[in-house]
Simulated assay, not measured.
Amino acid sequence: MAAIVQNVVTSGFFQLDGGSWEVDNNVWLLGDDHEVLVIDAAHDAQAILTAVDGRAVRAIVCTHAHNDHVNAAPELARLTNAPILLHPDDLELWDLTHPQRSPDAPLSDGQVLTIAGTELTVLHTPGHAPGAVCLYAARLDAVFTGDTLFHGGPGATGRSYSDYPTILESIRDRLFALPDGTVVHTGHGERTSIAAERENSAEWAAP
């Protein structure tokens, strides 16, 4: 049986470049009755732990290191004994939030994570952040995009460590290469699909 996708929405603040913005984050749990991966431990470790419901957390996977996606990661790791995984290109961003605690292991492009018999392929998709990754589960027709791709367009690139041409290249080359029916589980807001965002891209990704 394939893994099941669960969603927990947590609330807090995104902080960067001296600004602070209130946000709701999607925390994704992928697994079965016995084990899960947590994708983006945001804001509230206890709320995430409640959703885990006693299952073994095999890893806490960070799609990128903006504070609103990682601020609960060390506490959740402490509570579950799970390793924190992050692409090394985002270590500088990570250190802005957790200077005293490093991630436990790196993520790399093409790496495969397995949970509950389901493989997740790591896709390095820089632009919103240097070490941003997406996680593609072919068996589930699903991709977890963090803040790289949303319903209606790409993630923000107006602050430090981000770059608009780079995020467009990541979306075109990595995400739009996925099948049209792939469900896009985003870091904030509602789900979408690769087909829908490819169609939408005419409005924001013109050459």
Rank of each mutant, 00 (worst) to 15 (best):
I4R: 15
V5S: 08
Q6A: 12
Q6G: 15
N7F: 10
V8F: 02
S11N: 14
F14L: 12
G18P: 08
G19P: 02
S20H: 07
W21N: 11
D24R: 07
D24E: 12
D24I: 04
V27L: 02
L30T: 01
L30F: 07
G31V: 09
D32A: 06
E35N: 10
V36D: 00
V36W: 00
L37Q: 08
I39M: 03
I39Q: 02
I39N: 00
D40P: 02
D44E: 14
D44V: 04
A45Y: 00
I48R: 01
T50R: 14
T50S: 14
G54C: 04
R58M: 13
C62I: 05
A65Y: 09
H66R: 13
N67W: 09
H69V: 07
N71F: 06
E75N: 09
L79S: 10
L79A: 12
T80H: 00
P83V: 04
P83A: 04
L86R: 01
L86M: 05
D89W: 09
D90T: 04
D90I: 02
L91P: 07
E92G: 07
W94I: 14
L96N: 08
L96P: 05
T97H: 03
Q100Y: 12
R101P: 09
D104N: 07
D104R: 01
D104K: 03
A105D: 15
P106G: 10
P106L: 13
L107R: 02
G110Q: 11
L113Y: 10
L113N: 07
I115K: 02
I115V: 14
G117K: 11
G117A: 10
L120E: 05
L120M: 11
H124I: 06
T125I: 11
T125H: 06
P130I: 07
P130K: 06
C134A: 15
L135G: 03
A137M: 09
A137Y: 02
A138L: 15
A138H: 12
R139F: 07
L140I: 06
T145Y: 03
L149N: 00
F150Y: 14
F150D: 05
A156D: 15
T157W: 03
G158I: 07
R159D: 12
D163R: 05
D163L: 03
Y164T: 11
T166A: 06
I167N: 03
L168E: 09
E169F: 09
I171C: 03
R172Y: 11
D173A: 13
L175P: 12
A177L: 13
L178F: 09
P179E: 10
D180I: 10
G181A: 11
T182A: 04
V184Y: 01
T186W: 08
T186I: 13
G187C: 02
E190C: 06
E190M: 12
R191Y: 11
T192E: 00
A195N: 00
A196N: 01
A196T: 06
A196Y: 01
E197Y: 00
R198V: 05
A202T: 11
W204E: 05
W204D: 03
W204V: 05
A206Y: 13
P207A: 15
